[in-house]
């Protein structure tokens, strides 16, 4: 039963909003397969621009940097973040609320300010710019998300399950493998994917911390856009957005965005 139905009008509206959201992305993707570099219509299908990418050293090295930083960010943020959320879950201690509150500035303050502050501070104390500085920044941005996501999963965890398994004679390793891990794994996996996405899609922080020559994919794309439009940017952008969306579908698989199924 529908509580507040707007009938067919509602559906039409929904489709229009989806059109608004996807139209530019689809156009960009289609144009990346267009042979003409002046975006002429009708589209003459070709993989020319994807071929050109394969020979573009700058883009390729930036892509390698992006993936490398994202993988390292995922590993570090997952381990540190999970450890912190375990402490919040298991112990009640003074300063716990303050520490949880401290997770919000990195999310709530505009990246422009966080990014320029990092640039200023890292330069000042001698850390400088470059890939190591970007990694430092990316992990810091990913940490709050990891802690919040894993904490949410831990909150739903019922320790009595372990007790029940143990009382029926399961040895500790079996309790962990068959009860604890299967329950917590989706949360940890979702957190790891979040961390990867935060890093892989991060532009602002990387922009301020990159040095000419060594940057990440979004920074390289931005530089290329400012120089002028070419279908090559469309091609790499299409790959990036396809990859990000696939990643998000992965997150959604393990983490329910839309609330419980009814």
């Amino acid at each position: 039963m529908r509580a507040f139905s707007l009938g067919g009008l509602g559906r039409v509206y929904l489709v229009l909003v989806l059109l608004f959201l996807y139209c530019p992305i689809i156009v960009m993707a289609v144009m990346s397969f267009n042979e003409s570099q002046f975006y002429t219509l009708p589209v003459k299908w070709s993989f020319k621009w994807y071929g050109a990418l394969a020979g573009n050293e700058r883009i390729l090295s930036a892509a390698a940097n992006s993936v490398g930083i994202a993988v390292l960010t995922t590993l570090i943020a997952s381990v540190l973040g999970t450890a912190a959320s375990l402490a919040f879950f298991r112990y009640r201690f003074r300063g716990r609320e303050v520490m949880q509150l401290l997770l919000f500035p990195p999310i709530a303050i505009p990246w422009l300010i966080t990014g320029t502050a990092m640039l200023l501070f890292f330069f000042w104390i001698g850390i400088g710019r470059g890939l190591h500085a970007m990694l430092l920044g990316h992990v810091a941005l990913a940490l709050p998300y990891v802690i919040i996501v894993t904490s949410a999963r831990l909150k739903a965890y019922d320790p009595d399950l372990e007790l029940a398994a143990r009382s029926m004679g399961a040895p500790p390793w079996m309790v962990f493998r068959r009860v604890t891990l299967p329950f917590l794994a989706p949360g940890f996996l979702a957190a790891a994917l979040f961390a990867f996405a935060v890093s892989f899609d991060q532009f602002v922080i990387s922009y301020f911390l990159s040095v000419p020559g060594t940057s990440t994919l979004p920074v390289e794309i931005y530089t290329a856009i400012r120089k002028g439009f070419t279908p090559e940017i469309n091609a790499i952008s299409t790959i990036v957005i396809g990859f990000s969306m696939a990643l998000l579908l992965g997150v959604a698989r393990f983490y329910k965005f839309g609330g419980e199924r009814k």
């Binding site: 909003v17 959201l21 530019p24 992305i25 156009v27 856009i225 439009f229 990036v240």
Partner: peptide
């Protein structure tokens, strides 16, 4: 609806230039 939410912001802005 939320799929574009986490995908690359820069690329989505760029797509509007098209």
């Amino acid at each position: 609806v939320i799929l574009p939410f986490w995908s690359n912001a820069l690329v989505r802005i760029f797509s509007w230039t098209m």
